[in-house]
Write a protein that binds this DNA or RNA. Sequence first.
RNA 1: GUGGGUGUAGCUCAAUUGGUUAGAGUGCCGGGUUGUGGCCCCGGAGGUUGAGGGUUCAAUUCCCUUCACUCACCCCA
Length: 427
Amino acid sequence: METISAIRGFKDILPAEAGQWLFVEEQARRVFHAFGFRDIRIPILEKTELFARGIGESTDIVEKEMYTFTDRGDESLTLRPEATASILRAYIEHALYATDPVARLYTIGPMFRRERPQKGRYRQFYQIDAEILGLDDPRVDAELILMLTHFLKAVGLTNPHVEINSLGCPVCRPGFRSAVVAHLQGREEELCGDCRRRIDTNPLRVFDCKIESCRAAVEHAPRLADFLCDACRVHFGTVQESLGLFCVPFSINDRMVRGLDYYTRTTFEVTTDVLGAQNAVVGGGRYDGLVQQLGGPDIPGIGFAIGFERLVSLMPRVAEDFRRTPALFIAALGAEAQKIAFELANRLRLNNVEVEMDYAGKSLKSQMKRADKLGCRYALIIGDREIAEKSGVFRDLRNSTQTPVGLDLASITGKMEALQRGVEDLV
RNA sequence: GUGGGUGUAGCUCAAUUGGUUAGAGUGCCGGGUUGUGGCCCCGGAGGUUGAGGGUUCAAUUCCCUUCACUCACCCCA
């Protein structure tokens, strides 16, 4: 039979790696819960129109990177490229704003992009996503960033650095935008094809272009900071003050415009000293008009998305550090011992003790080998002698010492606990 | 979507100008110890050399096609 492999750009997270992933998720949930966030589970498939409207028609995501297909009902569906649009859809659809004016929501799960896979960039990738809806207070922006950096430190990132910017609001951004367009229109021949097109579609994106001539062309372009209206200026100031209160290290990057259309006011990215400044682990920002744009009431929002794989790759503790090892291996010799081992192993498991045993009737040597390979701290050896004496051999594989132990749950768990406390057993 | 690189054992890799039974390390299984792991020693299993076609007396090696993986570009939610 021909074997079947995973499809292009999709990848298995095997147990050897999954322990590290679990750790990251646990830390996220712990920290986020403390900050009042609640888990929300949203579908991974949505109507294409949701993303077209939510993310912006002229973004690269919507233009060419979405995992879109037509289902049998002739409806265009898309595997979600990000979580924000889906969360807002659910928020609006269930009128969560009617229950509580403030919603803090997070979700952890797979996102999809239809790109050619490369290093660390698969078609299915994972994000940790958090959104706050119903608050436009700038202190909330700072609070969200504080939570984010706190989480990043919890998983061991040494030097998370936050870059922030303000993109203005519908009052002041149009002025900036037209100033940028005016600036660019005089320099069209210096721009690459994409950027020339962007003048009409998404002029601010030109700031993100890596091509040298484009960078030069925007070198003396108008500065966003000079166009912010009073309200936005005050807002941005309070964000900075609030971050300072908790000594969150940040810098202002007024060229950071982010790839999505919906952002307003505060935007931010997190980089680390491991990757250099060009690769962000987290991107986020405020999107005060988005809920309304998706057909909901005029409710402000702010959120971020953490790239899971990238975060994992930046952690100082590697996958091996999160290996799960059974606490006890039960080695049995002979049919009678196997019976006892089987019952003991599963009764211990029912009591939440991680136990492994051999079912194949292998030699004691090979069972001990396996116990060692699995990283078991203790082994319980049961053979005819032990059955006759009603007392098993309890071996500490780390110290290579062994003592007798009763063949009952209480004796075994008591022995393990005593040894873990470092108490020498008296028997 | 564009360009480069690579496909040989579960994994990491060898194999002379094309040459006869395709090797090593590691992992796996077993033995060296009548019932004791790690270190060491010995043995064993495990391959359609990605697939298909071509050239040749002979192809892992050369050519073509295809698929996969991979790196980079583009872009990055």
